[in-house]
């Protein structure tokens, strides 16, 4: 029953051990890293912006609905949008979405290379394929996804503003007062820690699924789906653990 999960865990640890070995040539690694950073960052900016603007907007509207008839001041909307965005929505939802977009893309790319014998061809040349093919993807994700999450958080707060101020829910001054209230700088650090951990999970798990794919196009499709599902589950588990470790008093 536990044989298969243990086998995959062992294979995953071995893979990551080889990923962090010395590159064959740093210039080639750097070139690939820049390509990955561009693909992940620029390629995902629009979807992240779109999701985050609605997260902020919906949070503002729903909190306003909950505040209706209570004595809680209206400016709390800005405060809640800011903290929910920083602590939970921006890192978690963005990374869940990126697991679907970036993760499945990585799994398909590596799986396709495996099936077309491109990885074997590189292996025969003497290329450290773990380091050259997986390393830039994981490192690129760890470097770029926290930036995306930060941009996403800013857009989410803007989304909250657009949903509440022009509609007359509250004034601009009230919203900004809310943003400035009870600010804990550690929440920004928490957001970035979550983003780094989640980006490592989603890139490494997806690369693992793609690199070790066996069979034909059906198996490749399944590997791509598995990459997303397993990444999403592990991100949620990691989110819980990080909340326990870093956000409990």
């Amino acid at each position: 029953m536990f044989n298969e999960p243990l086998f995959h865990l062992g294979q995953y640890i071995n893979m990551m051990r080889l990923v962090i070995s010395r590159p064959n040539r740093f210039s080639m690694f750097w070139k690939e890293l820049v390509r990955q950073m561009y693909d992940i960052g620029i390629g995902s900016l629009l979807i992240v912006a779109l999701i985050c603007i609605f997260i902020g907007a919906v949070t503002a509207i729903q909190f306003n609905y909950q505040l209706d008839g209570t004595l809680v001041p209206k400016y709390y909307i800005g405060y809640i949008v800011r903290d929910i965005t920083l602590i939970e929505m921006a890192p978690t939802v963005t990374c869940l979405v990126l697991a679907g977009k970036v993760g499945s893309n990585m799994a398909s790319e590596l799986g396709g290379m495996r099936q077309k014998e491109h990885i074997d061809a590189m292996d025969i040349m003497g290329v450290n394929t773990y380091n050259f093919l997986i390393g830039p993807k994981v490192l690129g994700g760890i470097l770029v996804i926290p930036m995306l999450v930060t941009v996403g958080a800013a857009i989410s707060i803007l989304g909250g503003y657009l949903a509440s101020v022009p509609t007359g829910m509250l004034s601009a001054d009230q919203y900004i007062q809310g943003l400035n209230s009870f600010f804990i700088p550690f929440n920004v650090i928490l957001m970035l820690i979550k983003a780094v951990v989640f980006s490592y999970i989603l890139t490494s798990v997806s690369c693992y699924q793609g690199y070790y794919v066996k069979g034909g196009s059906i198996e490749l499709g399944k590997a791509s789906t598995r990459a997303v599902v397993i990444s999403d589950i592990l991100i949620l588990v990691a989110d819980y653990i990080l909340a326990l470790l870093l956000a409990t008093k």
């Binding site: 064959n24 077309k116 014998e117 491109h118 074997d120 061809a121 292996d123 025969i124 040349m125 003497g126 290329v127 450290n128």
Partner: peptide, 17 residues
Amino acid sequence: RKLRNLMGMLFQGSALF
């Protein structure tokens, strides 16, 4: 990997990138 630098291989499907 060092030994493989001395090898070349032509694959059945060519395996061109």
